[in-house]
Design a protein around this nucleic acid. Structure first.
Lengths: 249, 249
DNA sequence: CAAAACACTGCAAATATCTGCAAGTTTATG
DNA sequence: CATAAACTTGCAGATATTTGCAGTGTTTTG
């Protein structure tokens, strides 16, 4: 194998996954880690990748974005995500909706976890593609420009063929009295189908969004199994949900 | 064996495999490695291949030019995109594959055009979402991490329900003899289905990619209606395609 | 702060390249 | 047609590059 081929392979991997591990590449290409280290060093000197301890990252992939954006709300979402990933086990099949909280969950996926994720969300799928071991099935359909998810009959039909372990819903407004509500009718239809096809439904939301109500109902409160917020499960804000028999994390 | 014959053979091998090993060629042609080395040196000086330690690689595979070439390549892709959008009319229904050239086409869509676009490509859908008047239908399926498009049975089945006006294919390698080829088998299956469901198929590619061949055939040259490159349709490079009755833009 | 993972250095073996040369082949020319 | 000049090819020996490994230093992580 030519050095140039290895270089091309490394660049390709960096383009697709935004980051690589030297050991992975060495293993795949059947050469020593030292060789890959030297390759990456050259690519770094040629300003094609950025070499870091243990691997390399893409130049345009802005790691600082992630930290810089770490504002107050982001911190809460990160806390929610950490709780959510604790529910995951290898070989689970899950459904994920859209929203920045769910994206945060994907960022917190353990690097080696083996999951099958079904999603109608374009941004979520884009985030998932960067994970090395997740199998992603995108639920096709008409793309809603607002929500950036597939909606409509095709999406609902595709959902009806599934039976998954968990469903993570990251958008929407939850209230004890009105249940889960939404302002977009088409999104409601998709979420209904998602909840129906999952054994357990988890709602992920920052506490500020609780007790709000929107125009359309996705489901009554009883259909929600678990509520994950940034708050301690014992927090007084959540009392009403605790009384409604919702599991709190 | 004449030197020119060896040169032709070497160029052919480089076109097909993107790389060669001096020792392989020497063995196949039954001449010394030194001779092949000198041949490759000449081809390198003539800017037809790039000589590297142990062999040679094709120029468009030459990663060191990657950054420098990028703007140049971008200009070509922009030229291709401008030609492609001239084919669009309001209320058309089209299919678009992946690749940076297709993304460029989307960027060149007129702001008010009314189109329905079906696509299995995640990056393309993400780009399309920014357009105000396009109706997008994402073709769902298992997401290929390399190609960033949906592949597999679900995608093919969804495609089989369509009948569209135009299909834009932006990746792949086109040669008169071998037709449209690809290195990813699953992508080939999707593209086959796309071509089948479109009244007309347009291949969009920079001229450097022409006359290259990959492992799997998507379709023979006759199934392609139009070839759009950055070159003038009368350019001598395209003669073989003109003779194959391909419309050139 | 200690263990684990990773990086760096120098070295040796394998492989590739370069140089000069001699033998063979082709081409040009009177 | 004869012959010199130019080119081509393979080989041998010297030089250079690549690669994996072992030993040692550095960074990361819990």
């Amino acid at each position: 194998m030519l050095k140039e081929e290895r270089h091309a392979y490394i660049l390709q991997e960096v383009r697709v996954h935004h980051r690589i591990l030297l050991a992975d590449i060495a293993d795949t290409l059947q050469v020593s880690v030292d060789t890959i280290r030297r390759d990456v060093k050259e690519l770094d000197e040629a300003q094609l990748v950025k070499k870091v301890h243990g691997g390399a990252v893409s130049l345009d992939y802005n790691i600082y974005n992630y930290v810089a954006k770490d504002n107050f709300l982001q911190q809460k979402k990160s806390d929610i995500a950490k709780k959510a990933v604790r529910l995951l086990r290898d070989d689970m099949v899950i459904l994920m909706g859209g929203g920045t909280t769910n994206i945060e969950v994907v960022k917190h996926f353990p690097p080696n976890i083996k999951l099958t994720v079904f999603t109608p969300s374009l941004p979520l799928a884009t985030q998932l593609i960067q994970h090395p071991t997740i199998k992603i099935i995108f639920l096709g359909g008409v793309l809603s420009k607002d929500a950036q998810i597939s909606v409509g009959a095709d999406t609902i039909l595709a959902l009806q063929q599934l039976r998954v372990d968990l469903c993570f819903l990251g958008t929407g407004y939850l209230s004890v009295k009105e249940g889960l509500t939404e302002y977009d009718y088409e999104v409601v239809q998709v979420k209904k189908a998602m909840i129906e096809r999952a054994k357990k439904t988890m709602v992920l939301t920052v506490s500020a969004k609780l007790n709000s109500v929107q125009r359309f109902q996705t489901c009554p409160i009883q259909d929600i199994d678990t509520l994950i917020t940034e708050l301690d499960p014992e927090d007084a804000t959540l009392t009403a949900f605790r009384e409604a028999q919702i599991q709190l994390l």
